[in-house]
Design a protein around this nucleic acid. Sequence first.
DNA 1: AGTCTCTGTTACACACCGTCACACGATTTA
DNA 2: TAAATCGTGTGACGGTGTGTAACAGAGACT
Lengths: 250, 250
Amino acid sequence: MLSVAYSAEAKHVTAARLAPQPERLEELFCAVPRESFEAGEGVFWEGDQADHVFKVSEGVLRVFKIIADGRRVITGFLYAGDLVGLSLKDRYLYSAEAVTPVRLRRLARKPFAEALEKWPDLRPQFFARVCDEMATAQDQMVLLSRKSAEERVATFLMLLARRLHGCHPIGRRIHLPMSRLDMADYLGLTIETVSRTITKLVARGVISPEGRHDFAICKPGKLLALCGDGDSYEETIDREPKMRQAIWPH
Amino acid sequence: MLSVAYSAEAKHVTAARLAPQPERLEELFCAVPRESFEAGEGVFWEGDQADHVFKVSEGVLRVFKIIADGRRVITGFLYAGDLVGLSLKDRYLYSAEAVTPVRLRRLARKPFAEALEKWPDLRPQFFARVCDEMATAQDQMVLLSRKSAEERVATFLMLLARRLHGCHPIGRRIHLPMSRLDMADYLGLTIETVSRTITKLVARGVISPEGRHDFAICKPGKLLALCGDGDSYEETIDREPKMRQAIWPH
DNA sequence: AGTCTCTGTTACACACCGTCACACGATTTA
DNA sequence: TAAATCGTGTGACGGTGTGTAACAGAGACT
C-alpha cells in the first residue's frame, strides 16, 4: 500500500499529491493518511521492529525508555512537524506515547529509504534532522549531568517558549501540555521538585501561572539567566571566577 | 593539502592507496597521513567551523562541552576505530581533546560528503555509525537521569570492559586511561564520589585494583547487576519490589 | 636523598533533592 | 449530595552526593 507511491516511476503516482521530485522531506508523508491517537495511547514500543518513520502533524508525543525497576526517562517531546524514528537501525530505541490527542502520518521505512536513494536533494535535509536530534541529545546530557533543579526547569521553560511554533500565538506565553510527572521524567527530577521549583519561580515573579498548564514569562532575561547556559552577560560577570555557590542570594 | 586526494577524479589519486570503490567507510581515511596529539592537547573546539571528520587510529579522545561557570560535561570517549565529527552541520557541537597520546587521520568534510554521494554502498555504514552514536547518547541520558552513583560507575566499568577491543588482551581486565576527573565529568558526579564509589566496589570484592588505572573484574555478574539495566536475573529477584534502598548491606 | 607537583583518597558538615505524608481542587461515580 | 479518583501543591524529614578540606602516593626534578 504505502510503497505504491515510491516503488513506481513518477508517472505512476496517481493517488498522491506528491510531486515527482519532492523538494522537502516532509512531502514524503503527504501521500499517507493521518492516524489519530488519544492522549496516553502508545504509538510504538522500545524493542519493536522499527518498520516505520512518523511525522507528527498535530499534538505532542513523548519518547521514553524504561529501566529495570520501573524508572522512566523521557528523552524528548515531539511537536507538530517533527519526525520520529529517523536515527534507528532495526529496532526502536525507545517507546512513543501521545501526550495530547495526536495525529500523525506513518511511512514505511523501506519507501522512505528508497526515496532518499532516489532523490539526493532530500539527503541533506534528512541529515540536518538527524543532526538536530543529536544536538538536542547533547544539550539534554548537559542538563542532566550538571544543571541544578532550578536550571533544569528554567531551561525547559525556555525551550518550550522558543518552540512556540504553531501552538500559541504570543511569544511570552508558555503552554505545558504534559503532566508534572512527564516533566520530572524528562528533567531527571521528581514531581515534587518540579512543583516546588515552579512555585519558587512564580514567587520571584519570573513567571506567572495562568492555570495549571499555562504560564506567562514576566522576566525573560531572568529566566534566560537561570538556564545556566551562560547566554547572558550578567551571569558571567557577576560570578566570582570558578566559584559555584548557591545561585540565589536569599 | 589534504583535499588533493579527493578534489580530483579517481585517476588522479596517486599518493593514496585508496581503491576507486572503497568497500568500507574507514578506507576513506587511509589516504591521509596520521597526525599526532599529546595527552591533553586539543583537536578541535566547540563552535569551530566543522571542516573535518576524524578517525581515531590510536589512543583515546574525550569529547566535551563547557557551560557558563566552567562546568564541564564529557559526552563521550572515543577509541581507536571510532569516527569523530560525523553528525554535525556547520559547527562542532563539542570540543575534543586527547586523553592519551593520540594518532588520528583527518579528512576534510567536503571530500567525505562527496565520497558518500559517489558511492552509495558507504551510506548505510555511515548511517549505522550515526545511529550508534545516537543510541549511546540515549543510554547516557538514562544514566545521567536516573542512575545512582554506584550504578553509574558500574555501568562505566562494564562499558569499558566490553569495549576492550584492541586495548588490552584479556576480558576481565579494565584499563581506565582517563583521570578520575574525566570519569566524574562523564558520569555527572564529582571526583570524590567516583573515588568513594570505586573504593566501595573494591571493598566488596567486585573489582580489585591493579594500580591507579587498572582493575580486574572479580565478580562480573555482580558488576552487571549493579548497572541497574535489568540485564541480569539476580537483580530482579533479589530486590524487594519497587524498593530502592541503600544498595550495600555493609 | 629531598622537594614539588599532580592525582587520587579519605573525612566530615551540609545542601539539595528525594521520600513520605497529607491537603486541595477538579472531575467522575454512586 | 457524598465518595472516589486523579493530578497537583506543600510540608517535614532524611539520605545521597557535594564542597572543602587535609592527607597519601607517584613521578619528575634538582
